[in-house]
Design a protein around this nucleic acid. Sequence first.
DNA 1: GTTTCGTACCTAACAGAATTAGGCAAGTCC
DNA 2: GGACTTGCCTAATTCTGTTAGGTACGAAAC
Lengths: 198, 198
Amino acid sequence: MDYGNLAIMARAGLTTERVIRAGAEMADEIGFEQVTPTELAKRCGVKTASLYSHVKNAHELKTGIALLALAELADLAATAVAGLAGKDALVALANVHRDYALDHPGRFTAARFRLTPEQAVTSAGVRHAEMTRAILRGYELAEPHQTHAVRLLGSVFSGFVGLESAGGFSHSTPGSQESWTEILDALDVLLRAWPRTK
Amino acid sequence: MDYGNLAIMARAGLTTERVIRAGAEMADEIGFEQVTPTELAKRCGVKTASLYSHVKNAHELKTGIALLALAELADLAATAVAGLAGKDALVALANVHRDYALDHPGRFTAARFRLTPEQAVTSAGVRHAEMTRAILRGYELAEPHQTHAVRLLGSVFSGFVGLESAGGFSHSTPGSQESWTEILDALDVLLRAWPRTK
DNA sequence: GTTTCGTACCTAACAGAATTAGGCAAGTCC
DNA sequence: GGACTTGCCTAATTCTGTTAGGTACGAAAC
C-alpha cells in the first residue's frame, strides 16, 4: 500500500446528508441529469466506490436530492407566506417557486423527480399542498372547489416555471416577468370569481 | 464470417425515421429516460453499433423522439380544434394534451425534452403557440394580454398533465377528472373576465 | 449478365459509469 | 493498550455508449 501521501490523505468525513447536499449543489451547477456517482465522488475528494457507504446507488442519490429540494422549497414557502393573506400570500407563494427554480435549477428539476407513492407521502410534498390550501383561506372556497383550486395553482406554478426555465418563453416578447405578474393578477381575480355551478 | 443463418439474416431495413419511431414506442412502454441505444437495437433486431448509421448518438435519438412527439401533438391539436371556437375550442385543445399524455406517457415527457434554441424554433413548438393563440380569438384579448393568456394556458396544460401523470393527484379525492373539468370551466370564466388594468 | 457503387449491417475494441467484495487504518470506547 | 466500528481504499466485474473498419446486399450502369 502507498502511504506516501498520508499527510494529505485526511478523511473527508462524509455522511449521507453531506453527500446528498453536495449532489444538490452539483445539480445546480451542471444539471440534475448529469449528477452521477463518479462525478460526485470527484467533488467530494473521494473514490467512487466510497460513496456507496453513504448512498445505496445512483437512483437513491437522486431520490435524496429530490427529497432535499422538496423540503427546502416547503421551508422557504412556509416563511414566505407567514403573516400574509389573500393576494399577497398568493404572490409570495408563487414567487418562492419561481425564485427557487431560477436560483437552483438543478434542485428544481430534482423536485419533479418521480417518487414512489410511499416516498411521496413521506416527502415534503404534502406540506406544499397544505400551504397552497392555507393561502386559499382568504378566498373562501368550499370543498370540493378548494381542492380544484389547489390543483390549478400547483399546475400553474409548476407549469410556468418549468416552461420558463426550459427556455419556452425566452424567444418572444414581452418578457416572462410581465406575463408572470399579469398571470398572478388573473389568478387572484379568478379565485375571487371562482365558478361554483354545482 | 458466419453464414449459417443467412436465411434469417434478412436486413431489418431501418431508416432514421423508423429508428426514431421505434424509440418513441419504446418510450411509451418503458419510459423516456430508459430509451437507450442498446435497448432500442435489441427491439429493432440489430446490433447496437448498427444504430449509429441512422442516429448520431443517444442524445440525438432523444431529440428526434422529442421532435416527433411535438409534431404529433400539434397535428392532433390542429384537427381537434378545427371548426371550434370559444370554450369548445379551449376544452378540445386541453383534452388533446391530456389524452396524449395518458396514451403516450413516454412521448409526452419527450416533448418536454430540452431543445437548443435553433431546434426549438424549427420544431412544431411554434405551431402549438399559434394554435393556442387561435383559440383565444373567441375571447377578444388584445396584446399583450393575449400573449400572457397563451402562456397561462400552456402552463396549465403542461403543469396539470405533468403532475397528474407523475401521480401527484392520485392519492387524494376528488379524482383528477373532476378537477380537470372544473379548471377548464374556471379558465373559460377567467378568459372572459381577463383583467386589463394597464 | 457482369460491374459498380452506396449503404445497411456486422465484428472488434475501448472508454467511462455503476456496482460489489474485501481489506486497511483512523478514531472511539473500554 | 486492546477491540470494535466505520470511512475510505484497491481491485474486479459488468454494462452502456461510441468509434473504426470491414463485408455483403440491392439496385443502377454498362
